[in-house]
Design a protein around this nucleic acid. Structure first.
Length: 517
RNA sequence: GGGCCUGUAGCUCAGCUAGGUAGAGCAUCUGGCUUUUAACCAGGUGGCCAAGGGUUCGAAUCCCUUCAGGCCCGCCA
């Protein structure tokens, strides 16, 4: 059984509406670990619906959290915002409502492409609206109990004047520099290291925030959360999950949600990613280089508790090939191999939208990577595909959209992540600087004559090159090298027959002519 | 110190969430192909499933112990 079905079955033991939660503090580029989290929830969510359960998928943006420090990707000037809620800090690019939105919005856009449609909550709004008021009051009433739970389970000593509420200083707007002096419902008197002394009324929204270890369980209760996966950094003994369980059950009188712990996604050759160190690959970027169904496949095909090594180099091509293969197996075009576990469910969960009725038109991704280097736009790529009969004239609109989308991803990958070895540029404008000896020139001119009369097809081109190299008695290696040099200015290139057939025949003829004369 | 994950073919890994003759890709070898961006096709070689114990008619798979490697936590969220 697929892992998502196992989790869904677990949840279905209780016959009620399930709320599957995920979330993140958008304090920087949202990295692919969060992509894993939300796709994990999405998988369970879909399985629940599939089994006839009632469920909702939600995403909570912790945008009322304070900025902890000036991260490497921020300008020095952000020093003055450290300690302020990220929803209250200006956007680094100026185009968004706030610092938090700057990172959140583009991530939410990415979610659309991979077909995840959660209901989005923003902590800053929830606090300001007063949604948290009751939870805050309960926390304050149970201050000692909460303190005891946290101290006992996390084995951490909390300060004497600790309260389960971080007050926002009304003068300097920071949340990390205030200290409570006196609490008498509903007023907390506080002083701030900026020198300000004042008071807040906890019945008023947005005057402060529950600390994380209390905020999390409070939210479970408030939003009726029944399932929430979390990364292994949070799954540690004595961690927020452990204290949260006790707090939600004993203070908020609500059962702790079910969960699964997910492992990290590692970047091949670079190890674990840390957004705070700026070494992370952002979720958006990962999605830009990987077709959405393939990205989902990567997550769905791996149990959450296994770490995934993502190879943004040539390994990405293998991943796409693997996906395509699973697709052929799903549609019965190929026999499943032993070990292709749960291939049906895995394939279905990999679909951003609903599973297609018949197999999408497949074109080897590697080939697409070559094509996008020959033609700049999808229209031009399409022309080549049609001319060389690599796609049928009556290709469906869906298939075309799919191929078009894949070329976009291939192009992004090529420009930003592909190793140089597979890059080339067809020198259409001017001929590359090459010095050829007489033999090579003779070879080319003979080749030109022969090419002129053939049908412009990969196989024919391939054969003609061999034939000519034999006639002219030059090594086949030299023959290939010569052609690559005059077309792309390199000594090696993509498989010659297919490559040339994708180029314009007249261009090739003209180029040879220019070189030979 | 605590927690999690991993250990299966030369390499990378699947199979462990159904206990029932050990699987794939790459590499290698053979044959074919007029060897071209980690080429393609057909086939072959290759494994005491880390070690030990237990449960079972039967264990890579479940349980216990040991060894080795990786990651996370012991600031904040």
């Amino acid at each position: 059984m697929h892992w998502a079905d196992v989790l869904a079955d677990e949840l279905l033991k209780e016959d009620k509406k399930h709320v599957l939660a995920t979330g993140i503090t958008p304090s920087g580029p949202i990295h692919i670990g969060n992509m894993r989290e939300i796709l994990t929830s999405d998988a369970v969510y879909r399985c629940l619906l599939h089994k006839g359960g009632e469920a909702e998928l939600i995403y909570v943006a912790d945008d009322f959290d304070p900025l902890r420090k000036v991260y490497p990707y921020l300008p020095k000037s952000y020093e003055k915002y450290v300690g302020m809620p990220i929803s209250e800090i200006p956007c680094p690019c100026g185009k968004h409502k706030s610092y938090a939105d700057h990172y959140l919005i583009s991530f939410l856009e990415s979610l659309k492409e991979i077909g995840v449609k959660p209901r989005v909550y923003r902590a800053n709004e929830m606090y300001k609206n007063g949604d948290y008021n009751e939870a805050i009051q309960i926390a304050m009433e149970n201050m000692d109990k909460i303190k005891e739970i946290i101290q006992k389970i996390s084995k951490r000593q909390l300060p004497k004047n600790w309260i389960p509420f971080n007050i926002l200083c009304s003068k300097c707007k920071r949340m990390t520099s205030t200290e409570a002096v006196l609490y008498e419902y509903p007023i907390i008197e506080y002083k701030c290291s900026c020198g300000y002394e004042g008071e807040v009324d906890i019945r008023q929204g947005g005057v402060g925030k529950l600390p994380w270890r209390v905020d999390w369980p409070a939210r479970w209760k408030m939003l009726n959360v029944t399932f929430e996966p979390f990364g292994k950094d949070l799954g540690t003994v004595g961690g927020a999950r452990d204290t949260g369980e006790r707090i939600v059950e004993e203070i908020y009188n609500y059962p702790a949600p079910k969960y699964t712990v997910y492992e990290f996604i590692l970047l091949k050759g670079k190890g674990a990613m840390h957004s705070s160190k700026g070494t992370a690959l952002s979720a958006e970027e990962m999605l830009k280089m990987t077709p959405p169904e393939v990205l989902r496949f990567l997550i769905m095909n791996n149990q959450p508790n296994k770490h995934i090594v993502f190879d943004s180099g040539l390994g990405l091509l293998n991943l796409v090939d693997e996906y395509d293969r699973w697709e052929r197996v799903y549609f019965g075009k190929e026999e499943p191999v032993k070990g292709m576990k749960d291939y049906k469910k895995t394939y279905e969960l990999s679909q951003p939208e609903k599973t297609p009725d018949e197999i999408p038109y497949q074109l080897p991704y590697r080939h697409l990577v070559t094509l996008v280097q020959i033609a700049d736009t999808w229209e031009d790529v399409k022309k080549i595909l049609l001319r060389t009969k690599q796609i049928p004239k009556d290709l469906s609109k869906t298939d075309e959209e799919h191929l078009k989308q894949r070329t976009t991803h291939a192009r992004y990958w090529l420009h930003n992540f592909a190793p140089d070895i597979i890059k080339f540029e067809v020198k259409t404008k001017k001929k590359p600087q090459v010095t050829l000896d007489e033999k090579q020139k003779k070879f080319l001119s003979t080749l030109k004559e022969k090419i002129d009369s053939i049908d412009w097809k990969a196989e024919n081109i391939h054969n003609i090159i061999y034939e000519t190299s034999e006639e002219e008695k030059i090594p086949i290696k030299t023959a290939f090298k010569t052609i690559y040099q005059i077309i792309i200015g390199q000594e090696k290139g993509p498989r010659m027959g297919y490559f040339l057939s994708n180029l314009d025949k007249d261009f090739v003829l003209k180029r040879i002519e220019e070189i030979v004369k």
